[in-house]
Design a protein around this nucleic acid. Sequence first.
DNA 1: TTGTATGCGTTATCAT
DNA 2: ATGATAACGCATACAA
Lengths: 369, 369
Amino acid sequence: MSIPPSSKTPSGPSAVDPVEAFLQRRKKATINDVASLAQVSKKTVSRVINNSPSVRAETREQVNAIINRIGFKPDPQARGLAFRRSFLLGLIYDNPNAQYVVNIQAGILDCIRGSGTEIIVHPCDKNSDDFLEEIRDFVELQRLAGVILLPPIAENRQLLAMLDDLDVPYVRITAMHGAENTPPILSPQVVSRDRQGCLAAAEHLVELGHTRIGFISGPAGYASARERRQGFDEGLARHGLSLSDELITGGEYTFESGFEAARHLLALSPRPTAIFASNDEMAIGAYKAAAQLGLTIPDELSVIGYDDAPIASRITPGLTSVKAPIRDIGRTAAETLISEEKPRRNTTIFDTALIVRESTGPREPDFKP
Amino acid sequence: MSIPPSSKTPSGPSAVDPVEAFLQRRKKATINDVASLAQVSKKTVSRVINNSPSVRAETREQVNAIINRIGFKPDPQARGLAFRRSFLLGLIYDNPNAQYVVNIQAGILDCIRGSGTEIIVHPCDKNSDDFLEEIRDFVELQRLAGVILLPPIAENRQLLAMLDDLDVPYVRITAMHGAENTPPILSPQVVSRDRQGCLAAAEHLVELGHTRIGFISGPAGYASARERRQGFDEGLARHGLSLSDELITGGEYTFESGFEAARHLLALSPRPTAIFASNDEMAIGAYKAAAQLGLTIPDELSVIGYDDAPIASRITPGLTSVKAPIRDIGRTAAETLISEEKPRRNTTIFDTALIVRESTGPREPDFKP
DNA sequence: TTGTATGCGTTATCAT
DNA sequence: ATGATAACGCATACAA
């Protein structure tokens, strides 16, 4: 940085600079090199590295000067061995969509970039027999600094209990938030307010004049599915409306299930004039069903999805969808894990927003239910 | 596994089993525990762990029995420190699409699952000032067991030179293969034969009667862009056709660039009856352009993409596209890196295939060029 | 074939 | 505030 090429070390002004001599060797610097060059013990160097308060400012500067000059970076392996924990964050997930995973990764990296922490990805299969054991081995063996859990396994009680037992810090990314969170889970979580965006989606449809609305849900047991449904219900309720049972159909967050569900809904008589799908995959399935029936979106059918996946803005007509700030969520999750602060916030909540595109329009004026 | 609960160790049949005693302590086993329990030195245990041939079969079994009973797993950190390298694979990439990254990751994991190796993801920015330095620090600090490079940075000569200098094993995943690979790069690579699938795409269009075909290329300098173009040219040439210059337009592998390119092509007079886009993102851009112009796919315009991205099978009409076995490619890359075999294959090639869907059809019989 | 002493690069303990 | 010495868990050199 701003260190002059010839520093005024106690070894004398015009003598051969031992630092320069060291740099000639072109070997990776260790704490020992720093110690001997700075003429202190390794322990003192270690204290500097770890920001121990019990180091004289003068000594600290001296050591830091050497560290910068020879480009010393402590070896994470050795450090980890001594600390008994690594500097690795584990990202564990079962099977979310690709874009979601990549966005989360990007967010995590926003946070850890330059911090010396790295992220190791660990997909798993929640239906596998050794699901828990496999994760246990992974976490234990790698001595992870922290774990980030994505939905839906972030809602797996057994997994959480095991991680508690393993005594590893972890953060859950989830849509769940509220009373059904019982018994209360104390681990930090980063939450997206799915409910809110879906509420907006419902109101949007109502304002467009739709009253006969189809709802394609997410898989039973998924917190996100529950939240989205409740948000949607709430939005309708604000206008004195509600979903009729026959227009509620179960999806599995897959394209195929959305297609089938929409086919079912559109075969009803009278058919719904709008469909809310609990994610974009299924909404696109509804597009396909509409196309097969020759229904034009949005003129004859309005569609809303959830995720604001890339396809939403690429398909014609553009898909109105609810967007959560996935990348921010990932970043926050990592921050929660590696922040120095003692009292880290236990729950961070992110709002979701309705992105209105061309897939939603006014109900056909002449449509007879 | 199949070890009886009470084993017949030399310590005596009905005496207090030292192994059981150890298991009571519920502490993570170390090599020392194994050594004392098996009544050998740590070194012998170490040899067993590392499959050293110079261990008597009997001794080996004895040690392995203890290892299994107490569930000993060598600590990667300590092992890495002694080995001077970690058991981590680095996946470095700049900005491919999300599905590609996730597929590659899945393939890598197919390979390393249960091997003790883990994968750490490292996105980077090839336009950043400290692009190389940043990667150097990463690789050096983590003492990576190997590096997997994705396109387009897998084609960056400076990066390759640096990795050579760092003496870290690495594999390149690329589309490039052939004479233009000069000066020859000796590092292992896993190659997809982009050329072949694109050749098939061209022939497919020709067979449907198309002669006036638009081509949207990938970014200049990308090996994949070059290969796809050449494959397509070759396919046309087999039927005595070739791309006319005015129908070749440059894309950037982005949705927007595909949209603009297609708009340009479709504004020509006479317009092309078919468009090949060098990836699906751009092909979907062409869909949008066609929709804006009121052109029906495939009746009035045939479209082919590349990647067989999820959107290809979800959009209506389904997009005919070239598919590469991404996951297999990822797996092979990992295998190349962690295989025990000395003479590991330097280049593995995977075929690509044309997936025909509904976006391609016969040229309109009455279309006058 | 097996064991002993030592090193890998860092932190923890306990002194001074 | 600083330092000598012993961990941390495993591998290597060199003996035996």
